[in-house]
Amino acid sequence: MSAASTEAREGATGVRTRPSAASRVVGFFTSGIVHLVLIVVALFWLIPSLGLLLLSLRSSGDNAASGWWTVFTRPAQLTLENYQNLLANPTITGSLWNTVMIAVPATAAVVVIGALAGYAFAWLTFPGRDWLLVVVIVLLAVPIQVALIPLARLFGDLGIFGTVFRVVLFHTGFGLPFAIFLLRTFFTQIPGELLEAARIDGAGELRIFATVIMPLGGPAIASLAIFQFLWTWNDMLVALIFTDSQSQPLTVAIQSQLRQFGANIDVLSSGAFFSMIVPLIVFFAFQRYFVQALLAGSQK
């Protein structure tokens, strides 16, 4: 309800008069307190990331000697040295490439396979459809831990080499229940007349999928893609088990520096912030779609 229409209604019914001076003063103070509280909260939520950024912009000598907050009194100490070292480190650049090679295919596979299945659940009739959908919903909550031991064995038995590929397979499987569920929900909202019209024109299901569903389902697919991309980009556990030093993504490469936290703070802080850059760009650019995915995932 917009403020204007509320006012209009109040004016029409005349139930409310203008607030008294006293209540306006009270209102001013309450709103002042609300602003203050939320500013403090916002600071509490910002300071951790800001601290990491500042840590990463200070030389290891400075970080050993004093806290990052001293930059506010001595701004001259900022340097890009840690990032230069990071980018000159073949382990890090290699693992960045591995992260891309995991996140992009695993996202694409989930979108394509999930869209096909989502369409089938939304618009095709086949025996056991509802029952199968319940299975998908059950699988939504399966913890990753359940699959680690069997898949480590299965991939070995099948001789699936190239460990980046194993991680992609794993993420594709675990991304699918959510993808199917999300896309089915969105696809059912597409008007049935459009599909009927296409069928009457003699289009096959594959053609309908490609020319009607995919274009109309754009926002849903974007939501799914962003969600899945962030998930796979940020994963550490799966990669920790299925990759080796050649195929490890950024998260695993960075965590291997943790043992000497204080001494490695230059690598850790710049590496961690570096790993955040892509997710943050994606988040700020497509925040709306990300929220939509979360909402659809747990509210519909």
């Binding site: 939520w45 951790p48 990331s49 990491l52 962030l230 980009w233 940020n234 994963d235 550490m236 998260t251 960075i254 965590q255 961690a272 912030f273 790993s275 955040m276 997710p279 943050l280 994606v282 988040f283 990300f290």
Partner: peptide, 8 residues
Amino acid sequence: PMAISMLA
């Protein structure tokens, strides 16, 4: 913070 990795 929802967007960044738990590692970070």
